[in-house]
């Protein structure tokens, strides 16, 4: 937690050090549904952050609050030390919404021109089109695009000017694998230029691959916040696989230290064992201590997806 709030004199230097995004105890309910619950969050300049969570975790609500499209019931949201509305007016924020419809009856180029002209520091139209990979569809009517093409047009609108923060809500929905790769290429260029990028996703491999910080959201709260390696570690995220030539003693295996999951299946006269462990080294050491001779021993990292499932189920179980 930074303590910028305690200083009374707001100098230009302080403004420069203000977090890009700051949520202070933000809650938002829709009727009886609590979409965001006492959320504390800070993003710093240059970070590429994934907001990860299943559908209904509060990702879109969080982004709506961040962009000032909704007002929080309690708490406060600030961007660059000011209100979301003012930050947007100043052209500091580019955003691509999941539900962001496009203006119909106009051509792609015309729409991009509009976004450019509305931005206080807009880029040349051809550059925006090329960057978003939509030069070839510039003269098409907006209503006649495929889902993936629409997403790229939305991306073009979000990157039409020199923004400091780019917010994307499930940006690759509807894209095929190759356009997804191209899209993330364009996204990485934005990050390399020093922009802060925040994207919501439930494609876990995207968070793992692209983000240098992953925030796991569940029931409107931050469940985990760290690098994807840390998230995986937190979920007990090493996998140990091996074969035994004899039938496994299940009870003995269950007693292994740091074990979080165990499956044993018979294979021929022996068995195959799969273990998830929070400390693979200690688990394997103890395994030899049992007098067992594991064959084909493999220790590997869990994908973020399994880590994510492990964290959320642990959370459910704790309730």
């Amino acid at each position: 937690m930074t303590t910028t709030a305690t200083t009374t004199a707001t100098t230009a230097q302080d403004a420069g050090r203000a977090p890009v995004v700051s949520f202070q105890g933000v809650s938002k309910s829709y009727g009886a549904v609590r979409a965001v619950a006492d959320l504390h969050l800070e993003l710093h300049p240059g970070e590429t952050v994934a907001l990860l969570g299943p559908n209904g975790a509060g990702k879109s609500s969080t982004l709506d609050l961040l962009l000032g499209l909704r007002t929080p019931d309690t708490g406060s949201v600030s961007l660059f030390g000011t209100t979301p509305q003012r930050a947007i007016q100043q052209g500091k924020v580019g955003a691509m919404l999941q539900s962001g419809g496009l203006m119909e009856g106009v051509k792609v180029r015309e729409l991009v021109q509009l976004a450019r002209d509305l931005h206080p520091q807009g880029y040349p139209v051809d550059q925006i089109l090329a960057n978003a990979g939509i030069t070839d569809i510039a003269d098409r009517l907006v209503g006649k695009l495929s889902g993936g093409q629409e997403q790229r047009v939305r991306f073009a609108l979000a990157t039409a000017g020199a923004n400091d923060l780019i917010v994307l809500d499930e940006p690759t929905t509807g894209m095929d694998v190759s356009s997804r790769q191209t899209f993330w290429g364009a996204m990485r260029r934005q990050a390399q230029e020093g922009r802060t990028v925040l994207f919501a996703t439930h494609y876990l491999e995207e968070a793992d691959e692209i983000a240098d910080r992953v925030i796991v959201l569940h029931r409107g709260r931050v469940l985990a916040d760290g690098t994807s390696a840390e998230i995986k570690a937190r979920a007990g995220a090493r996998r140990i696989n091996f074969d035994l030539t004899e039938p496994a003693d299940r009870a003995a295996l269950e007693a292994l230290p740091h074990l979080t999951a165990l499956t044993v299946s018979a294979s021929g006269s022996g068995s195959t064992v799969r273990i998830q462990s929070q400390d693979a080294d200690a688990t394997v050491h103890a395994l030899y201590g049992l007098g067992l001779y594991p064959r084909n021993l493999e220790v590997s990292g869990l994908g973020l997806e399994q880590a994510f499932i492990a964290i959320t189920t642990a959370e459910e179980a704790a309730r």
Partner: peptide, 16 residues
């Protein structure tokens, strides 16, 4: 209709 489709939301994220 434009509000339902979300175009106005997108427009509100500009300096307009």
């Amino acid at each position: 209709k434009e509000r339902e489709q979300g175009w106005v939301r997108q427009l509100r994220l500009t300096a307009l």
